[in-house]
Design a binder for these strands. Sequence first.
DNA 1: CTTCATGCAAACCCTTTGCACGTCG
DNA 2: CGACGTGCAAAGGGTTTGCATGAAG
Lengths: 136, 136
Amino acid sequence: MRPSITTRETAPRKAIAALIAERHGHFTAADLLADARRSNLTIGRATVFRTLDLFAEQGALERLDLPSGEHAYVACVPTEHHHHVVCRSCGASAEVADTGLQAVVRQIGDRSGYRIDSHRLELYGLCPTCRRVGAQ
Amino acid sequence: MRPSITTRETAPRKAIAALIAERHGHFTAADLLADARRSNLTIGRATVFRTLDLFAEQGALERLDLPSGEHAYVACVPTEHHHHVVCRSCGASAEVADTGLQAVVRQIGDRSGYRIDSHRLELYGLCPTCRRVGAQ
DNA sequence: CTTCATGCAAACCCTTTGCACGTCG
DNA sequence: CGACGTGCAAAGGGTTTGCATGAAG
């Protein structure tokens, strides 16, 4: 289906993938680096960045721009086009299909005269758990 | 209508506003700083950042996160909630109302269980002019 | 073996901060 | 005049790069 980017199965990459799997919400490169140090793994800063880029290209990660301007990542299954809902309290995130959004995008294209070929929708709020707990 | 944030009409602020007015598409803080130098204006780096923040708070600018991860700004009229369509060729941008998006957001909230309280939609494509010229 | 990935450190941004001076109102 | 804004330089983060070593296929 896909040209599958040529990459090697290296120890650092497996380690980083494992660290990501243990995380719940979104995380930054610095978070991962800290995780690695905590686990006594010797992984270079550069490797973390290079690997995050790689995973993002492969679709296993998606890069988010938080409202604060921070660059974060979330794990996601490389599936159809989708968007993320991010909890501003605990950082958890969920994937959502863009049902209905296609129509909105098309309409915006028509009205603006732009030929729209990509878009990003990011949603922020409180996840069910944090709602219940009453976090603000 | 609005508490109108208290600010002073200073020379640097007017100068920066003028530089912004001369720009067409989106721009970064570095762009503005370069503009200022080019015009032989003595404006400190810090002032540019502080002023951009100020304008953004006032609603005269909106901060965009380009797909590249760059932080850019676009001028906009401080009006209702809206979104921006950005031309990936020339950087021009247009404002669009979020007609229909409200419904999508509501639906996503229902399905995901999140209480969504803010969102960002950014659209990328080619503006009418670049389409005509055939830019890719 | 050959190619590709790593680690390290330095280099490079971009953005913020501390502080003394200038100025708007 | 008093509060607020400015410029400068330095600090602070985040991200990238150059290069020799090491591992993968």
